[in-house]
């Protein structure tokens, strides 16, 4: 069991010569996508959009929530998600993984003894999993994802073509991914050790699983994304192209943007506006400010795009900022359009 077993070791990752993907067409290639990003970058929205794009391109898909926040329930406007996989849209299944339910399932599977698993789950084991050994929770979560990835229907086909996981944020993702390895360090023999090792195998297999980083083209998210990308690569997991979310597009064609960049004199602007019924100086001032702000944001975004390309050796796939979005699912659907177009 130990010979040939793979471990999280930087030198191994280097040996494997992690090759980076160049093309957005490969976005939906792996069977499991763990979507992560700094808080507030729209990680859950991106995960939902990837799942819908996956369905639209003919894949039977499961979207998995692991932190019990019920974000997807709000996005899809459904009943609360729980441990039952439910079809929330045609060919799209939703599941909220609960570590305690995973533990019960695992023990029931392993022992076939309901009496024991109920006893254990109801009391001490849960206390253990949640208090004494926090990593166990993560092992159980990844374990459930692996079970779904391996599951086959009666005629031998995989039940899911794609599993999109709204994974923990970048601040926690390393510990999340290291949990199986930490378990193998504590537990040297027995079924838990074997289970943990099989999870490490899943995490390190680029054909089965990849990490999907989501960022904004802003300073702090870009810095955190660059750090995470490096740490994840050192860990040996394969990265998908990074998704840059809410990317602002220039409001007009290049010629008009140049006019704005050159600046319109205050009195000129006021004269033009006077013809439109906005002849107050405050309006002219507000519009000039909006124009400058727009240009400044685009400029800042260009800098951050350059910083991202410099900091990360992974291609970047951009999703547009939708200023006029009104309903959450509408936004997700529009973003899914962009992804579907890119992969087909």
């Amino acid at each position: 069991m130990t010979t040939g077993a793979r471990h999280w070791r930087p030198h191994l990752a280097a040996e494997r010569k992690v090759t980076h993907l160049v093309d957005a067409r490969t976005l939906l290639d792996p069977r499991v996508l763990l979507v992560t990003g700094k808080g507030g970058v729209g990680k859950s929205t991106a995960a939902a959009a990837l799942a819908i794009a996956s369905v639209r391109t003919g894949r039977r898909t499961c979207l998995v929530e692991v932190e019990g926040r019920q974000t997807m329930r709000a996005l899809f406007n459904t009943e609360p998600w729980d441990f039952d996989e439910r079809e929330v849209r045609q060919d799209l299944f939703g599941l909220s993984i609960d570590p305690e339910a995973s533990l019960a399932e695992y023990l029931a599977m392993f022992y076939g003894a309901r009496r024991l698993s109920r006893l254990v789950v109801n009391s001490t084991a849960v206390e253990f999993a949640t208090t004494a050994a926090p990593g166990i929770k993560d092992v159980l979560l990844i374990g459930k994802v692996k079970e779904m990835e391996r599951r086959r229907d009666p005629d031998g086909r995989f039940v899911y073509d794609m599993i999109v996981v709204d994974a923990p944020p970048t601040g926690r993702i390393l510990n999340f991914l290291r949990a199986p390895e930490a378990t193998t360090e504590l537990v040297r023999v027995g079924p838990i050790r074997e289970q943990a090792q099989s999870l490490i195998d899943l995490l390190l297999d680029p054909n089965r699983l990849r990490l999907q980083l989501v960022t904004l083209l802003e300073e702090m998210p870009v810095a955190e994304t660059a750090e995470s990308a490096q740490a994840l690569t050192e860990l040996g997991v394969q990265l998908n192209p990074i998704i840059a979310n809410r990317v602002l597009r220039p409001q007009a064609d290049a010629a008009t943007m140049k006019v704005l960049a050159d600046g319109i004199a205050a009195d000129t602007l006021q004269t033009v506006l006077a013809g439109s019924g906005f002849d107050d100086p405050a309006s002219a001032h507000a519009l000039r400010h909006l124009g400058e702000q727009h240009l400044r944001r685009l400029g800042l975004q260009d800098e951050m795009r350059a910083a991202l390309h410099e900091g990360v050796d992974v291609p970047v796939f951009e999703l547009p900022y939708l200023a006029t979005r009104s309903f959450a699912e509408n936004e997700v659907s529009l973003l899914a359009d962009v992804i579907s177009a890119a992969v087909s």
Binding site: Q251, T268, L269, V272, S276, G291, H294
Partner: peptide, 25 residues
């Protein structure tokens, strides 16, 4: 107001964009 501005005039076209930015904001 944005629609009424002359798209062939640089300044007016740019002003229309500024009005769009205001609508968006």
């Amino acid at each position: 107001a944005a629609a009424a501005l002359n798209p062939d005039d640089d300044i007016e076209r740019a002003t229309a964009v500024l009005l769009e930015l205001a609508i968006e904001a």
